[in-house]
Design a protein around this nucleic acid. Structure first.
Lengths: 347, 347
DNA sequence: AGTAAAGCCTGAAACGCTTCAGTTGCCACA
DNA sequence: TGTGGCAACTGAAGCGTTTCAGGCTTTACT
């Protein structure tokens, strides 16, 4: 069964396709009786115009940007979306979002399907897994579809990257708890193959090595990126029968920190009295938690804005897409979840 | 400056457009030297194929669903997205997300722009504001683009609606705290023109009226839907110099409840000892909070799945889109944030 | 050297729509 | 009755691709 087209409708209504087109587009100069007849045919046949045939083929059409995030649940991305949407809207663009949910195949699929839908440009927070098959990104390059990355290595791809100095910020966060007097500090690291996770872990390591201190392997646990991951890791880390418990924990992100705080509470430990907790991202709720979270503020909204702006700039200018790396500032905001360790207080 | 087309490239490379098309699509039967020459022309001119001209015009193309949410920050929608994405993927569809951010114009725009991009169907959580201008939805009906709603009145539109019994669930939640012995119960209601908010408030009212009890106006505050809204409302509700403070608060959603708990903590009040708190939605983190949240579990993922399934069904079947309302079960899950009031305990 | 088979490339139709210059038919007016 | 004007409609071109039946070269064999 072939799809019903405008000529099927025209035939059925006994008019020309031009008339049907007129009805479809609310043009004047169609007699009411004709309009009704055409509309009846449309309804009867369940006709639906093929938009592809109108759009770019005839009109300039609206322009849209696609934003591909790693996990739709993370408020980190929500703010980036908001920022990108703002900037895009100001320039007459729309933003559609797809989530790869940490699945490389989904990411690849998303890029392909959106590219086939004439999306004008992409903002992608890519999954950088082991093999790092970036063919879908190269395909974009190949077809002159511009994109901006939100995570990744410079140089790997000839394109723009918007991010923050994760190593530096994580170092600063770790330094904060060290300076507070903590000795046993754990780090709940993010997903294995995430560049962000690697960078933040590197920052933690750097804070230690700078002071010629040691970060024991057991103090680093790869937890994941969700509240539940943080909760699980926390329950485990502070499990019964454990000795040498950390007095401070830095987390991959705020979600993990929130989960950790839940676990601590369930273990009867208090924040910050018993354990100091540091997050990362500064998601909106961080400041409103029962114990406001000390965390690294990442200018997510600005990142979204900037990514969209740079992308649109590339779109409108000629073809040379510079491979620049824009680093926005990120810095620690100290709230109530960190304090000197009890030992230091009483000692 | 007109857009570069395939024939511009062909001319420049000194070949026919068919050859360029071949190169573009990686067809075999193109000499390496030719391919290189064509590719050079493509690169030099920054040529980018107009996807609209290929897609539906020639091929069947991939099918995609659009999901329009009210606020990208609410994890409620994240779960719906996940569910819809799962169901869609199983059936070979993609899902793109747009957020209206509580702005009717944005919603209208989103629908229009996506419809123009040949999205096959919509799942929409519509904004039902005062005037309730639904013209963009009628436009969809008019063009035979099927859609499923996640909020709204039956009958207003001839279409499918997937939701839960908000009135019943909110009633149950309120009943829970009443049964616990609370007398002074406040409700942090959602955004003014939200149907969900109205239904939930109605449920609260019903719980009271069934018991011939009174719900004073000052115990109902329209707070909004975010953590910050809950925090603000909480700070205000439990502000200094206030008397007759509530001993239990039911909230529009979990985010608001989280904000409220933050405010209570900052006011030196404890949950549930001083104040019981009930949320709504059962977002993922609800169970992992320091004080696990008593809340109404809404099967968000299932709602997403179901919405996608029903939509795809409509897509594949003939044209009669039944206007059915599917109600999924929602029920209270009692966790640690609710307890009998102190008075009741000591009394 | 002649020819069949391969390999490479092209012309033109087709995809489903919009648009616009006409054409037709009708009515009002002189 | 003739003329003009207008409203309603139509035919065909054109949008940027893909596709496919050939056509022209080259290669490989005899």
């Amino acid at each position: 069964m072939k799809r019903t087209t405008i000529s099927d409708v025209a035939e059925r209504a006994g008019v020309s396709i031009a008339t049907v087109s007129g009805v479809l587009n609310g043009k004047t100069g169609v007699r009411e009786s004709t309009r009704a007849r055409v509309q009846a045919a449309i309804d009867a046949m369940g006709y639906r115009p093929v938009e592809a045939a109108r759009r770019r083929l005839q009109r300039p059409g609206e322009r849209t940007l696609a934003l591909i995030v790693k996990e739709i649940h993370n408020p980190y991305f929500a703010d980036i979306v908001i920022g990108a949407q703002e900037a895009a809207r100001e320039r007459g663009f729309h933003v559609v979002v797809m989530s790869s949910e940490q699945d490389v195949d989904l990411e690849r699929d998303a890029v392909r399907s959106l590219a086939a839908r004439d999306v004008d440009g992409f903002i992608i927070n890519p999954l950088l897994d082991d093999g790092a098959d970036l063919s879908h990104l190269f395909a974009l390059t190949h077809r002159n579809v511009p994109f901006v990355l939100l995570e990744g290595l410079r140089g790997i791809l000839q394109t723009t990257l918007v991010d923050v100095d994760n190593v530096g910020a994580a170092r600063e966060a770790t330094r904060h708890v060290i300076d507070l007097g903590h000795e046993r500090i754990a780090h709940l690291a993010g997903p294995e193959y995430s560049m962000h996770a690697a960078e933040r872990l590197e920052g933690v390591r750097r804070a230690f090595s700078e002071l010629r201190r040691d970060l024991p392997d057991r103090m680093v646990v790869h937890a994941g990126a969700s509240v539940e991951d943080g909760y699980r890791a926390g329950l485990d880390l502070f499990g019964p029968g454990r000795s040498g418990l950390p007095t401070a924990v830095t987390c991959y992100n705020d979600l993990v920190a929130i989960g950790l705080m839940g676990a601590l509470s369930h273990r009867g430990l208090r924040v910050p009295e018993d354990v100091s907790v540091v997050g990362y991202d500064d998601i909106r709720m961080a400041a409103y938690l029962p114990v406001p979270l000390t965390t690294v503020h990442v200018p997510k909204r600005d990142m979204g804005r900037l990514a969209a702006e740079l992308l649109i700039e590339q779109l409108d200018s000629a073809h040379p897409p510079r491979a620049e790396r824009v680093r926005l500032p990120a810095s620690l905001v100290v709230r109530a979840s960190t304090a000197p360790p009890r030992a230091a207080l009483t000692g």
